[in-house]
Amino acid sequence: MEKLIEKYYRPRLPHIWCPGCGNGIVTSSIIKAIDKLGLDQDKTVIVSGIGCSSRASGYLNFDTVHSLHGRALPVATGIKLADPELNVIVITGDGDGTAIGGNHFIHTARRNINLTVILFNNNIYGMTGGQYSPLTPTDSKATTAPYGTLERAFDIAELAKAAGATYVARGTAFHANMLVDVIAKGISHDGFSLIEAVTQCPIYFGRQNKKGDASTMLKTQRDHAVTVEAAKKLSPEQLEGKFKIGVLHQSEAPEYTKQYQGIIDRAQKGAK
């Protein structure tokens, strides 16, 4: 059997990520999900923004776009609407996807266009050296918050759901097999899918906030993540300080590009 790395990665390794970074695990989870589903490699497009996670597009052997900071979703929307046969997967980060790209995020979710977004959440701007993002926990240290952050972090899964996303899931770099599973389900879902992938940044987030090395941060993911099923049996007190992983929300709604085909059919009938 052809190795995944030979089939799906371009011969451009080593990557630029720091030692201990979780982005490689998340990227390989995307590849395993694509492989599991047997997607046509020639009909699958990966679009990213700007930031550490967004560099992943350049390593993967598909048609790939490394777009502008925050703008992966509009570019992906254009690709998907122009050619709905393509599978369009978006790779973004917490800063790219929820700060500068926040408006695009909520509106793309609202439209329920069939894109699968994997948001690598490392709680920090890594590429620029450790500034706080909308997903940095309150009272964290960052190079732009030397006295601690004041702002509250988004719960990006709740935000996506409220904005109209029809599939919302969360996984972690530690629970890599489960991450493959929730990404595969997201790709299979006919509508806007968001998968928040919690990943560790030991260099720019961990070091400033005394979170330990990469393996310690992975163990923290293990110890604080609770599966959706297990969470049902726990009280709010027991869930304090924990976060849920698994499929958090799934619903049915008309998919945008299919609805648009209906517009074309109506317009062409009217024109004739």
């Binding site: 776009v65 992906a76 929307t77 254009g78 122009a82 408006n103 695009h104």
Partner: peptide, 18 residues
């Protein structure tokens, strides 16, 4: 109709690639 001017031009860049 996109959510803003930036998204408008972003979407046409994507569509042009197809």
């Amino acid at each position: 109709q996109m959510e803003d001017e930036i998204a408008g031009i972003g979407a046409i860049v994507g569509a042009s690639l197809t």
